[in-house]
């Protein structure tokens, strides 16, 4: 009798057969979860709890120990920072470490042309790829040596996340006390009129330089535009004040926080300074 050529089993048949084999193997020569696997899990859980307690102890006793001051920075940071104050914006925004990679993406994709890519675009695509992984990689192979593409992609992902996190962690911050030292140079470089003097003081101390650069000073951590020659755009004092009060009202989608809490008087001073900034000569 002539042998009927066997049809090649379909992919899903192969997968089902493999899983059936897995279940039979586990039933036949597996070992019970309790006590074997549970023993390992318990040890690991104890290590986790001890690590957490250890971190808490190091944090508390290196911060509080020396001079009983909750604001003192120990090995793992202070117990708490100064109370939140919406009025003073001289603080450099910094997220928790696992958001540093997002934070740094904002320096790569600059406001306003491509900030959307940094805040939403890239993270959304990355998340979609992560969720869709089982459907993108449909091969049966499980051994790392048989999955070169997946392994290279994973290494590249880990390296880029690590680099972005590291860059975010070490990004230069513009502290108000350091920024203030630039004021005489700014006045000279930009030939600021006396009317702009109160504004320049405010600009250096109100936190603007946490996101904006100006004449070579300040930090671009969040990719905000350089303001060295913002005055050449002749936006007008009124526009500047309105924009500072509520950036997203006049500039839909702007990620800049509102500075209405500074008060009308100081907003006007800032606006005069910004309009007087015609670039370095």
């Amino acid at each position: 009798m002539a042998a009927i050529p066997k049809e090649k089993p379909s992919r899903i048949d192969e997968l089902r057969a493999e899983f059936a084999r897995y279940k039979a193997d586990v039933k036949e020569r597996g070992k019970p979860f309790y006590p074997y696997a549970m023993f390992h899990d318990t040890i690991m859980s104890l290590v986790v709890v001890c690590t957490i307690i250890g971190l808490a102890v190091i944090w508390k006793w290196s911060a509080w120990g020396p001079d009983h001051d909750p604001l003192h920075k120990g090995l793992l940071g202070a117990e708490v920072a100064a109370p939140a104050d919406p009025g003073t914006t001289s603080f450099v925004p910094r997220p928790d470490w696992y958001f540093y990679f997002l934070f740094y993406l904002l320096r790569i994709f600059k406001w306003p042309e491509s900030v959307f890519l940094g805040t939403v675009g890239v993270p959304t695509i990355a998340l979609m790829l992560l969720i869709g992984l089982p459907f993108l990689d449909r091969r049966r192979a499980r051994r790392p040596s048989a999955r070169p593409v997946a392994m290279v992609a994973a290494v590249l992902t880990i390296v880029s996340m690590a680099v972005l996190t590291w860059k975010g962690a070490t990004a230069k911050e513009a502290l108000a006390s350091e920024v203030k030292q630039n004021i005489p140079r700014w006045i000279k470089d930009e030939q600021l009129p006396p009317a702009a003097r109160p504004g320049v003081q405010l600009f250096a101390t109100a936190g603007c330089t946490a996101c904006h650069t100006y004449d070579g000073a300040g930090g671009a951590n969040l990719g905000a535009p350089d303001l060295t020659d913002i005055g050449t755009r002749n936006l007008g004092i009124d526009f500047q004040i309105k924009h500072l009060q509520c950036p997203s009202c006049v500039n839909p989608g702007s990620p800049m926080p509102p500075f209405a809490s500074l008060g009308d008087e100081r907003l006007k001073q800032l606006a005069i300074f910004l309009e007087a900034s015609k670039g370095t000569h």
Partner: peptide, 12 residues
């Protein structure tokens, strides 16, 4: 914790 770090990180 409603401190400066918390507040400004959340603003951004």
């Amino acid at each position: 914790p409603w401190d400066q770090t918390a507040y400004w990180a959340t603003v951004v």
